[in-house]
Nucleic acid binder design. Structure first.
Lengths: 332, 332
DNA sequence: GTGAAAGCGCTAACAG
DNA sequence: CTGTTAGCGCTTTCAC
């Protein structure tokens, strides 16, 4: 029911109060007398007033926006994390400003600058390896930050994730227990995948099972990358017994390649994936994989941030390990 | 190398120029003399100046933010569209503010209000069915808008998508050509899926092949929903010959259920999916599905918006059909 | 419980 | 090419 631009002063006039009063009704209704409040709310509705949040942000230096930076949304796991995050933040009255790096660390720093420029109330980063400037900028700006999808001892602010090294160790232990003695790794060339390899390799070395054949692929991973990667692995190590793929997409490709070659999984080759995509349980054979609850990860991150932004609680822990588990199915 | 808050005036002082000049160097470097520009850039770098974009937005009423509203990010197709969109927009200097509705139309309207309040430069909506208020608010505010993932004759502003009805018709034609005479539909209870059903059903009716057994599931779809849905369909129509699933996730579940029941696909039952997820080609049997290039859809949307926001071109078409194709594999 | 004054930090006009 | 003068629309003190 309005024309072009309804301002707070228009609402104030219509309700016969001062602008501040309108502002109070909008941000903290209980601080205004019921009758006044009702009059203002009526005027807001009647005029179809939509507050300019940028003006509010400028005046209060609180934006009610949380920035999040991910490598890509094309991976179901990051998308799920963002889904959970956005849902929790939405409920708490925050909005999600999203940035994608495409796995480029410089892009990440630029995004951080832009987000600081927007005065985001908090920031979510993926992983724990960042350009030097990021940590100092964020700490200087005093922006609550959570790094997710990995752990580290000295987070910028908070970290919620799991130990990528530990997942590699767990997979190695499982494969070793199944009798594998000749190991391969098929992984995206990316920080967290490298940590998984590190854990995997050292557990295998400790068991005296020799070295790990490694095949790296460029992110983002595709099913074809998985198939091609396995072929290359097999070319140099035809006697391979177990392969750990740094994500389920690659594992799916590996499984496909096995079928094409007539290799029986897991009899001839054990295949383990990572992240437990919905299809992992549905493919043939069902994929043994490291299970990460990506959505819960995002939700947990959102709750932590919402709590921190509410300011009531006394800080809380900085390091949150959400753990992982091995979904043992038929492929290994 | 700064302390707390570096303002544009600090940079101006350091460089010996007025604030506007700094502003110009930042937004349109070529409008400033090379020497002056260099001095300003040096001062910016030295002081570590990060402009407050909210102040800029307030003063210029251009936010360099594009809002996007999707039902959920947990579906790879929407996530891919957002990935493509965010990438193109990022290149053009825009950022993505993301909102999720969880398939709730009222949530959508609230998000639209919030986005208008933030003065987003443009808005992307999913689908073409929206609450009454949305259209008028957006048009009144003059916000460039694109609705995507469907088509319609009278978009709010622009629409980029494909005809969901036509996909249903194409699937029906394919199934009919393969000799199916007893049809089922397994679909999420959601606007675009209903349109697919509509096209499917009417093509089948035209062919005189009787009615379609329908089983609806609540979004978001899971593989289990697909399996359970097919069971229910089979319970009431054991002689089913062809089933169209409104997305690949459901189709995957249906395929699984067939395997459990010892039903040969496609001999006993033909199964068609929708959207061509990466796994569609990799499952057993490979899934015949309607192929949509979700990422391209987002990219196209981004390009259209970027162009519109640049203002140089003379409007351009409002309706953009990106089409679809049938990826015919083994399941039907 | 409500109001008056004083900005938040930047860009749009217009001058020169 | 550069500077001056005014705001953008809201929230924050601090009074009353």
């Amino acid at each position: 029911m309005n024309a072009t631009k309804v301002l707070m002063s228009d609402v104030a006039r219509a309700a016969g109060v001062a602008r501040v009063t309108v502002s109070r009704v909008l941000s903290d209704p209980d601080s205004v007398a019921p009758a006044t409040r009702a009059a203002v709310q009526e005027a807001v509705a009647r005029l179809g007033y939509v507050p300019n949040l940028n003006a509010g942000t400028l005046a209060s230096s609180r934006s009610r926006i949380v920035g999040a930076i991910v490598p890509t949304l094309s991976n179901a796991w990051f998308a799920d994390t963002m889904d959970g995050l956005s849902q929790v933040l939405g409920t708490a009255g925050y909005q999600l400003l999203l940035g994608q790096t495409g796995y480029d660390v410089d892009a990440e720093e630029k995004l951080v600058d832009a987000f600081i420029g927007r005065r985001v109330d908090a920031l979510v980063l993926t992983g724990t390896s960042h350009n030097a400037g990021i940590r100092s900028k964020l700490q200087k700006a005093g922006i609550p930050t959570v790094e997710c999808w990995d752990l580290c001892d000295d987070p910028i602010d908070m970290v919620v994730g799991f130990s990528n090294e530990a997942t590699g160790e767990a997979v190695a232990a499982h494969l070793l227990a199944r009798g594998c003695r000749r190991f391969g790794f098929l992984g995206a060339d990316e920080d967290r995948a490298r940590k998984r390899l590190q854990g995997y390799r050292s557990a295998i070395a400790r068991a005296g099972a020799g070295d790990v054949m490694v095949q790296a692929t460029a992110p983002p991973s595709s099913i074809d990358d998985g198939a091609a990667g396995l072929s290359r692995l097999l070319a140099s190590a035809p006697d391979l017994q177990g392969v750990f793929c740094s994500n389920d997409t690659l594992a799916l490709g590996a499984l496909l390649e096995c079928r094409r070659r007539g290799l029986a999984v897991p009899r001839d080759l054990s295949v383990v994936g990572f992240s437990d995509l919905p299809v992992a349980a549905a493919c043939v054979p069902p994929l043994t994989t490291v299970r990460i609850d990506s959505r819960a990860l995002g939700e947990r991150t959102g709750e932590l941030l919402a709590q921190r932004l509410r300011r009531d609680p006394p800080a809380g822990a900085r390091i949150h390990d959400v753990g992982f588990s091995l979904a043992i199915r038929d492929s290994a």
